[in-house]
Design a protein around this nucleic acid. Structure first.
Lengths: 149, 149
DNA sequence: TATTGTTATACTCTATAACTATA
DNA sequence: TATAGTTATAGAGTATAACAATA
């Protein structure tokens, strides 16, 4: 296996983006479906995603991240708390503020189902050697990604 | 380069999904940002995506695809037509119906910016040999995907 | 009679403004 | 005085119901 030139990280990023773009509209459709099925607005879902990655978020922090007003954030969090998808706990260091955290129930809604039909179809005419190399490469990429998180 | 076992398409799909999942919340954030900047609702954006892939859509077809009511569809399309993002043309074969099509202006809003910072960072400690193989593999994948579209 | 819309109206989500409580 | 958040109210997006035009 060889390439004629030196491969740079930027070249791979560009390649990944081209592949990713191919799935873009499919992903939007899957996301919209996921939101509808679970009765979530896009902003509600975004809140779940943010508090998943960052514990003890404040309401104002979430509002800033999502470019929403504090009042809208109150409304959104109220709904999520009512549904048991996030918790609102008093901040002991600042009695004006609250910690927003994901519940187990909320965590269940994080994953948007993938639709890989199109991807699978593209393998139909692929050589076994190519499949092996692709699998190996993606495995390396996956390990690097998970390590860097 | 070798693998201990026979790689199946399903194994790669699974691997791709794991990688894709890693970018999921980042993508949701980028999408929300794109929608806000361009003053689009998720459903408006979904309509642009659908009419991009399928010409001469009817309103009812779009409503079914997005699980929206016909009345909501009328409202959404009215807005998009006013902004010049889609055209509504009479269907000569059925005078009740209209063809909805993407305009050039609408096509400009299809692409959601990618954020590959995280991806690029994961290459920092990668061997040149691994970069080469990854690039080659993704190139093959990309070609297969574009061909199958 | 069924289908493709549209119009009118109610409900949900977000913004604005005024406010309370705490820093 | 400034900041975190809430409450009340108005505007935008979607659902429901009733309707018009065409198949």
């Amino acid at each position: 296996m060889s390439t004629e030139f030196q491969v740079s990280p930027d070249m791979i990023v560009q390649m990944y983006n081209q592949i990713s773009k191919h799935f873009s509209s499919q992903r939007v459709r899957k996301l919209a479906e996921h939101l509808r099925k679970n009765d979530l607005s896009l902003n509600q879902f975004s809140v779940l995603n943010i508090v998943h990655h960052q514990k003890d978020c404040s309401s104002i922090h979430l509002a800033n991240h999502l470019s929403l007003k504090a009042a809208s954030m109150t409304y959104i969090i109220d709904l999520l708390v009512k549904r048991g998808l996030v918790d609102r706990i008093e901040n002991p260091d600042d009695r004006r503020s609250h910690f927003i955290n994901l519940t187990e129930e909320g965590a269940k809604l994080l994953t948007v189902p993938e639709d890989a039909e199109d991807l699978a179809r593209s393998f139909e005419n692929m050589e076994q050697e190519e499949l092996n190399m692709l699998y190996l490469s993606l495995g390396i990429l996956k390990n690097k990604l998970l390590k860097s998180t």
